[in-house]
Design a protein around this nucleic acid. Sequence first.
DNA 1: CTTGAAATTGATAACCCGTCTCAAAAAGAA
DNA 2: TTCTTTTTGAGACGGGTTATCAATTTCAAG
Lengths: 143, 143
Amino acid sequence: MSKHVKEMGVLKDHLGKHQLKFTRQRELILDAFLKQEHITAEEMYHQLARKDPHLGLATIYRTLNLFCEAGLAQARHFGTQTQYDNISHKGHHDHLICTGCGKIVEFENCDIERLQEEVATRNGFTIQTHRLELYGLCSRCRH
Amino acid sequence: MSKHVKEMGVLKDHLGKHQLKFTRQRELILDAFLKQEHITAEEMYHQLARKDPHLGLATIYRTLNLFCEAGLAQARHFGTQTQYDNISHKGHHDHLICTGCGKIVEFENCDIERLQEEVATRNGFTIQTHRLELYGLCSRCRH
DNA sequence: CTTGAAATTGATAACCCGTCTCAAAAAGAA
DNA sequence: TTCTTTTTGAGACGGGTTATCAATTTCAAG
Ligand SMILES: [Mn+2]
Ligand SMILES: [Mn+2]
Ligand SMILES: [Zn+2]
Ligand SMILES: [Zn+2]
């Protein structure tokens, strides 16, 4: 019946392995989160206020951070806020961000990834993660 | 006698063009800043506390932001803090960051830059700036 | 179905980092 | 030196996130 069966499974796996419990709040927040590409805790707080007016902001932060540990989300510090990126049904990706309207486009480019590896190797590093953001104007905002 | 003659000139130019004044604090902070590759306001505050115990933290923030406007520095939001990157005698560059010891290596790669342009064009974007950070372990931290 | 230990929640205080405020001090043109 | 403008330093303030803690919920065991 419920959507997001697979991701709910990923969450329950993680909970089981860390003696954490499955709660109404965690289910509710996961359902809402999976409908988004990127969202902040505050945005989610207001969005869920209709369904459950008593859901606390701290719970949202805690739960989004839990999703990161479970591999469903990825936190990106973006300006002053933290964006939680839904990575459950996509692999790694980077972002194009319009400085005019805030639009975010996701992309993947293996050539860039390969060159990053080369740079790292040349400097004796082993890459664990990376972050690539391109800021500019989208076609609409350029007029 | 004093080092950093060229950069002091860049600062004075900027001050002149914006009816700002040359102060003892600005000179002191620029001298300290140019000895670093990257530094936070807080670090600089403690470092300068010996030379001038009355120098205020707000003044450091204001001055480092001024350096950004003058093209001597570039702010990078890094985790929870802001790093000020000394770009006075280098052009644009990106960073390799060791998650073990915090070491930062600067690099430049035109192939990556060119591919970034391609990605942007393909999506109808015009790039203004970008940010590329590679996180991993340096040779020493990998054992 | 109970029971009870352990985890979770929600309200809100605390925190961190950076900016704002404002009276006193300094800069610098005349 | 004079006088206007800018700058400074101390601390208050603000936004975003985490910590605290008593009350509630989960869930495994009986
Ligand atoms: Mn994304
Ligand atoms: Mn640098
Ligand atoms: Zn746009
Ligand atoms: Zn290292």
